[in-house]
Structure formats: structure tokens, C-alpha cells
Design a protein around this nucleic acid. Structure first.
Lengths: 138, 138
DNA sequence: CGCTATACAGTAATCATTACTATCTGATTA
DNA sequence: TAATCAGATAGTAATGATTACTGTATAGCG
């Protein structure tokens, strides 16, 4: 995370100002923004950037393993620069998504056990929990 | 499951032939079909049934707590008449979704622990694992 | 600097899902 | 059993997220 340009180059991606802005923004937030929210933020720096560029760039970053695409709920996807497997808590009222790293469940370990038991070659594990956050319960 | 009509009536839903066919089909399969697949199957019995009716009926059954709507992958939702919280294994090649009830993780217990720890009022828990199934690995 | 593959902006197309509307039907009451 | 009515159905249109396409611009490399 020290050098955004270097990280992109290591993955074989061309380094462009738009790409750097998108990836840097994701690394600096903990809010799990949607593509639209990322677009709004990056437009402050690049007023001419198109939504399409943001969207396709996020897909490129995901395929390069630099960001995680989250499918919480049924609406637009959220993005996370933390690619380690961890739990996501999603408030059904305000839509906010939070990380939960320590929860008594080691997802990597669960995946390892299941590989031996089921014969599946695991590639991704998603644990999403929905509910109402303390703030929304007044 | 003994009597589909009775189950619907208990939930305060009107009992119609289309509804019974949709719900019965879901109870009898273990394949986690999409709305489209359900439509194709039910059309054998009701050739005039519309996709929309299948789709909205599935939403009604979900809201009544009779079926579970699964968001595995990024494509169309899958449906499951088993509403207990359990793990879903999804093959990224053939798209098949399988249940996994015993996996060393008690999802209900995880949710209980998190409620105390985070203050969230949990309502739903989703654990999806993606990979390649043994069959698709040849 | 000049070349080439690829990124960008803008727009159009696709796909799942939801909304709308005019009939039709299951359940209830007389 | 017939009348009534809330809600279900079929058909179609609208929405919203995602993907595809196209002409131009730019990063990386010699």
C-alpha cells in the first residue's frame, strides 16, 4: 500500500492517473463504497472521468486480486481493498457494511477442512451477516 | 411439507394451483433452481403460466418465510425450500449449488455470539463458498 | 520522438428485477 | 348456490446494475 503506482505495475497493469486515484481512494477508506460512490469521490479529482471507466477499472482491479467485490444485499456491488477473507456485517436499514476480522471463526481454516471433505477446489469464501446496526436501533 | 396447500394457508396465503405447483416443485428438488428454471419446470403442468407470476410468487413465498433466496455469484438468484441457515457450495464452472449442513461451523451459534459482541440485531446469515466441484475437475 | 497495445469517455445493449394494469379467481358471506 | 371482493394472474413496461461497443487519447517502450 506504500506505493499505489508500484502495486499496479507489479500486477502488470498500466499505471494511469485515473487508476491510481480509484485504487488509492479504496485503500484509504473503510466504508466499502459502491461503484457509484467511488465515482462521486474520484470526480473531485478528475471531473471528466466517466462512470464506465470507474466500473471497468474496478473489474480490472478485482481480476488482478487487488480489490474484493462484495455482493451484500441485492443491490449494487460494494468494493473493498482488503482482500483477506473476513466477515461482512450489513445493516439492512442504512446499508452500511462493516468488517469483522475476529469473530471466533477462521474462514481460511473452514475452507481447508471443506476441501478435504467435499473435494471442492475452493477459490473464494463469503460470510455475510444481515441485521440492524446499533445506531439504527436508536 | 406433508400438505402444500395447508402450509400455504397457515401463512395466510391464498391457495392457488399455480402457487401450489411452484412451492411443491421447490420442495421436491435439491437443485437450487433459478426463477427461470422453476418457470420451465412448472410450465409442463401450466403451459400458460407467466414468468412474472413465478417471479412474484417466489417473492411472496420468501416474505412468508417458506423459501430462501440465494445470491450466489452475480447472476440470477437461486431458490431453496430449506430455510434453515446452512452453507452453500457453488461451482464456478457448472454453476451448481449444493447444501452443506454439517461443516464444523454452527451458523446460528456464530450469529448469537456476534449479536452480543457487536450489538447488531441479526436477521440473516449467508455463508457461500465458491470453487470448482470434483466433477468439473474431471 | 514514434509506435503499439491498451485505457478512456461516451453511448448503447443486455439482463435481472420490479412496477403497472386489466382481467380473473379463491374464499367468504348472504 | 350466487354475489362480492381482496388478492392472484398474464402481459407488458420501466428500472437499475452490469457489460459491450467505438472512436480517440495516452502509457510504456524502443
Amino acid at each position: 500500500m506504500a506505493n499505489v503506482a508500484e502495486t499496479l505495475r507489479e500486477k502488470g497493469l498500466k499505471v494511469t492517473p485515473q487508476r491510481m486515484a480509484i485504487y488509492r481512494m479504496l485503500c484509504e477508506t473503510r466504508a466499502h463504497p459502491t461503484a457509484e460512490a467511488i465515482w462521486e469521490k474520484v470526480k473531485e479529482e478528475f471531473p471528466a472521468i466517466s462512470f464506465n471507466t470507474v466500473y471497468t477499472t474496478l473489474g480490472i482491479l478485482e481480476r488482478a486480486g487487488l480489490v474484493q467485490r462484495l455482493h451484500v444485499g441485492e443491490k449494487a456491488a460494494h468494493y473493498d481493498a482488503d482482500t483477506s477473507p473476513h466477515i461482512h456485517l450489513c445493516c439492512e436499514r442504512c446499508g452500511r457494511v462493516r468488517d469483522l476480522h475476529k469473530a471466533g471463526v477462521d474462514l481460511t481454516e473452514v475452507a481447508q477442512n471443506l476441501r478435504a471433505k467435499t473435494g471442492y477446489e475452493m477459490s473464494k469464501i463469503e460470510l455475510n451477516i444481515y441485521g440492524i446496526c446499533p445506531e439504527c436501533r436508536h
